[in-house]
Design a protein around this nucleic acid. Sequence first.
RNA 1: CAGGGCGUAGCUCAGUUUGGUAGAGCACCUGCUUUGGGAGCAGGAUGUCGCAGGUUCAAAUCCUGUCGCCCUGACCA
Length: 616
Amino acid sequence: MTIQTNQTTPHASWSPVTTRRGEVTRWSRTIIPTLRDAPAEATTPSHQLLLRAGYIRQVAAGVYDYLPLAWRSLRKVSEIIREEMNAAGGSELLMPALAPIELFEETGRAQDYGDDLFRLEDRHGRRTALGPTHEEVITDFLRHAVTSYRQLPLTLYQIQTKFRDEPRPRAGLLRCREFIMKDAYSFHLTVDGPGGLNDAYDAMYRAYCNVFRRCGLDFTVVEAESGPIGGSASHEFMVNCETGEDTILRCPETGYAANVEKCEIGERPWSFESGAGVQPVTLQKHHTPDMPGIDIVAGHLRVTPAGMLKTLVLQPAAGVNSGGVKWVLAIVRGDHEVNLGKVRDAVGFKVALGDEKAARQAGFAIGYVSPRAARGTPNCMLVVDPDAAQGASAWATGADEPDHHVTGFVWSRDCPDNPASAGYVKVADIRNAQVGDPSPRCTGARLVAQRGLETGHIFKLGSKYSVAMGFSVMDESQVRQPVIMGCYGIGVSRTMAACVEMSHDENGIIWPAALAPYHAEIVLMKPDEPVHAALAERLAGDLADAGLDVLIDDREERPGVKFKDADLIGMPVRLTIGQKALDAGGVEFKPRADEGKGEVVGLDLVVGRCLASLAR
RNA sequence: CAGGGCGUAGCUCAGUUUGGUAGAGCACCUGCUUUGGGAGCAGGAUGUCGCAGGUUCAAAUCCUGUCGCCCUGACCA
């Protein structure tokens, strides 16, 4: 057996300008445990393929080994992120995964994060958390290290393993308990102006677009929940793919896109007046026992869910100032979903589902509540979605007594304004947007839906953490100011999985050149044929000289096995060295994304051909 | 957390209803043949049937408990 020298050892002499030389790996000397069948527990494409192609192995629920191929790909994602973060003015550092729980108690996140925070206790009984993100840790560092406004602005980031005790890990790398994340934090004295938060936020926005574009991903930027500063203070970067966990809505005219929970809905006409020429209908009570779900009730009453009013009994969230309001009834059409965030914006304070016991005591027939329940209930607010505030329609709704519903409900007749609730009736957008709703940005346009996978999120934090942790600096006029912060995350391991999710076929993964563990795979048909083996080594060396990473499949396997595995692991270019092609004066060249068997390319042209193909 | 499903060889699974010697295909090892899309023949190795109790002459199979994993939902900076 001959000893193979490592051809990628860099020269000992140092040079300030380096052209990266590619790396060469032999399959027989690494481990790529491909599987013919996908393990039964994998159901999503990226999970199945990453397992089958020998990239990952499960260690526990939501915990995975990153095997050599996956780690190479992850490093490529990380390197792209580093370059863009550095270009955007960031400095990389590394904080610990372990952090004392007291830090999270300072900001209240020990409570807010709840069971999602991984907790452990060391031998001394010290309570410790495994970091889910590092706002507290970095703020703790900087409140000691930064004392003057002259040290700001500052952007710091790290690429690190993060921990979340997910209630239900799923879909392989897409929702893990342990995962790799890039988290960045920026610090400012002001929101606007040079060196302000908005500058850094915009720079990050551009950097994120660059990162995902360079990764070869098809993505959409969506507006997410507004932060404490207002405006569009948060954006999510969603990879477009059908299997994505999130539904996003998009205005085809303006490019406005938002998460389904956050999406605004355009103007909708409404009126409680019944109008002229409407046939009078009588209010009729119906016995509707044991009918869980609005569809069943609607079927029994011979109406559609869209012909019903759904009433949710809500209460002000614990500890908020509701101005004396004790109950909030949220009314939407039966086929719509109440959005608690929108209700909060409409009423001006945070709300939660009402406590069932207390609601019953207050006289609400839970499950059979109608808008009329607001009458006679003191301190009860009524919030109605425009689609439900249609006075010209006769509605089906609850009868406000157990096991009964009514039909023929007319707003103007059956629910006149309640003296006890005077001024407490409000019409507002309080439901989740859906396909076909009017665009909030363009009259006449309708929202369309697409599925997405969140791989990045940028956020204007404001001074939430700096105030809670006492991080302030002296400004020019010698006034102490809380530092204003932004935070910016990218799921590194999730980005890799999202790429597989987005780009594969029935035979395996199809990597974009930027994230592929190796740019090219050389399939050696006869590894024990010295001439062939020597050619493979020479070709790999030439490719490496051109900056390409190369995997040589030198296993003693049948051709079929090697071709199947090559398709499965998905390197962008496949070069086959076999007698057939050699007799024709070259090697067989085939891009992974192309159909067919490839073509013979002369030896002196192969490198150029590979480079051209990868640059596409 | 609620509902459902699964745990038997490295992988996919049969066997559990009706208790009676632990199975198949693929993978693995050896030899021969074969060599451009998951080969053929011959031989070989492989298991605390998730774990712990219980019932029984006898438990993968029945009972009780427990752990793990998956799916749907709730949840998700």
